[in-house]
């Protein structure tokens, strides 16, 4: 069940109209309602919480600026997600030439999360695992697994070949598998 289903359509429309009129209270309500789920999305696409918050901030600002372009044809949350992904992509493109993060070492990961591994890793740990991926792996993994995009679409979006997309996804999975196994072992 999406969050949007919890907002009556009339109420959502009122909030959107308020945003169109640049009513600050409506803008805040939209932020409070969709902020947490969008924050989760941004965390997955970013290397850390700070960057995720930057993306979230940019995304909401873009949304308020362009809300007149929302045509009520589809889900508002879906539209907002697209904006967030677009902002994350912009951030990825601006960063991609500046650095290429290596995955966290096993030791780093263990130190930053010493206690809370159970049989299953918590959601936060899973996010940290994704964040530990190199940016290009992380981007492909997110787009493939969470957005359901095909390799062809990912390749065109990221301006890479389909083969590179597949290779990045495979490497991302292998890295995650290793991290999962390693951390579960540590937890036990």
């Amino acid at each position: 069940m999406t969050k949007e289903q919890n907002i009556p359509i009339g109420e959502l429309q009122k909030l959107i109209n308020g945003c169109l009129a640049r009513d600050r209270s409506c803008q805040r309500k939209i932020y409070e309602f969709y902020g947490p789920s969008m924050m989760s999305l941004c965390l997955r696409y970013s290397k850390n919480r700070q960057e995720a918050e930057e993306v979230l901030q940019d995304g909401f600002l873009q949304m308020y600026k362009c809300i007149s372009q929302f045509e009520n044809k589809g889900s508002f949350e879906g539209w907002l997600r697209r904006i967030m992904i677009n902002c994350a992509f912009q951030k990825y493109r601006s960063n991609i030439n500046r650095f290429n993060l290596l995955p966290l070492t096993e030791e780093q990961f263990r130190i930053s999360h010493p206690n809370d591994f159970a049989d299953r890793l918590s959601e936060k740990e899973l996010i940290v695992l994704i964040q530990s991926l190199p940016p290009s792996y992380r981007m492909v993994f997110n787009l493939y697994v969470f957005e359901g995009m095909k390799h062809r679409e990912i390749a065109s979006l990221l301006n890479i070949s389909e083969g590179t997309s597949k290779s990045n996804l495979s490497d991302a999975r292998n890295t995650l598998k290793k991290q999962l196994a390693s951390n579960l072992k540590i937890a036990r």
């Binding site: 947490p36 789920s37 924050m39 989760s40 890793l121 936060k124 697994v145 999962l180």
Partner: peptide, 14 residues
Amino acid sequence: LFRDSLQSHRDESS
């Protein structure tokens, strides 16, 4: 594992 765990995940920002 990742999809099911994180699809409905919510996190508070600062």
